[in-house]
């Protein structure tokens, strides 16, 4: 059962993390720390939506694991690709 208090708390947390991410975009032009923080924020937001708004928290099975894996794999991959473009170039050049 999705209760009201839980959903409101998660929603507020999602809005807060989003605003912090946007603030990071304004105050810092580039660098490893902002990239890691922004990607971590995206992973946290993905987990919150999957677990509590979709309602997969505590549900056993491949559906929950695969949905969480989407963010646990893609967010670090994006951070790595952003921080090490020369590796991406090496891997994708003929």
């Amino acid at each position: 059962m999705l209760n009201r208090e839980l959903l409101v708390s998660v929603w507020l947390l999602l809005l807060a993390v989003t605003l912090i991410s946007a603030l990071l975009a304004d105050v810092s032009a580039s660098g490893a720390v902002p990239v890691l923080l922004v990607c971590a924020a995206a992973a946290i937001k993905g987990k919150l939506v999957v677990e509590y708004l979709v309602g997969l928290a505590g549900v056993k099975g491949a559906i929950r694991r695969s949905m969480l894996a989407y963010f646990y794999v893609l967010a670090p991959l994006i951070a790595l690709g952003w921080l090490f473009p020369e590796v991406v170039i090496r891997l994708t050049s003929l």
Partner: peptide
Amino acid sequence: SLVASPLALAAAENASRRAP
């Protein structure tokens, strides 16, 4: 703290629930 306790409660409640 506002978020942590409802989250833990929801995970415990959902433990025996099917995926939507």
